[in-house]
Amino acid sequence: MDQVTLVLVRHGESEGNVAAEAALRDDLERIDVPVRDPDIELSELGRRQAAAVGTWLAKQPADDQPDVTWTSPYRRARQTGQIALDKASLELPVLVDERLRDRDMGVTDMLTGRGIRDAYPE
């Protein structure tokens, strides 16, 4: 059997990550993002992080280059993968797999810990 290497990469910093940090810092109840969680894009830092992954990929020996990529349907994950592939000059199939998506927070989506405690004290 051939050896298979699996490389896992989390998405780069997103605008949602930035907003969540600001909400926690300011002790707010809600995380202020203008779009649904699956539609949140990468921050500028997240784009640089994704490009750094691409730089790393490009430096790997040819035998260690990926053959395919899988991504969640979330925009930030798809952006991370595409930026990394572009930076590495790799043209690979990109398979979107719903099972890789972020957790679903339900009614607590976009609430901070404080917001959850205030809305659902029980």
Score class of each variant (00 low, 15 high):
L57K: 07
L8M: 14
L28V: 05
D67N: 09
D39G: 09
P121V: 08
N17C: 04
A51G: 10
L42R: 01
Q3W: 08
G81Q: 09
T69W: 10
T108V: 10
R117S: 09
Q49R: 07
I31D: 00
D2T: 13
D86Y: 07
E13Q: 14
A88W: 04
D64A: 13
R36G: 10
G81C: 12
S43P: 07
W70S: 03
S43A: 09
W56D: 10
T71P: 05
P73W: 01
D39A: 13
A119G: 10
G106R: 01
S72G: 06
R99K: 14
E122F: 15
A77S: 13
G16D: 00
T80G: 04
S43I: 08
L6R: 03
A51E: 14
G106M: 02
V33M: 08
V9N: 05
I116K: 00
D104R: 13
L24D: 12
D27H: 13
R76V: 03
Q82H: 15
R25L: 10
K87F: 06
N17D: 06
D27P: 04
L57H: 06
V4A: 15
V9I: 13
T5K: 12
S14A: 06
P34K: 10
E29D: 11
V94E: 15
Q3H: 12
E44A: 12
E15F: 03
T108N: 04
I31H: 00
Q65W: 06
V96G: 01
L57W: 05
R75Q: 09
G46S: 02
K59W: 09
L42H: 02
R76A: 02
P93D: 12
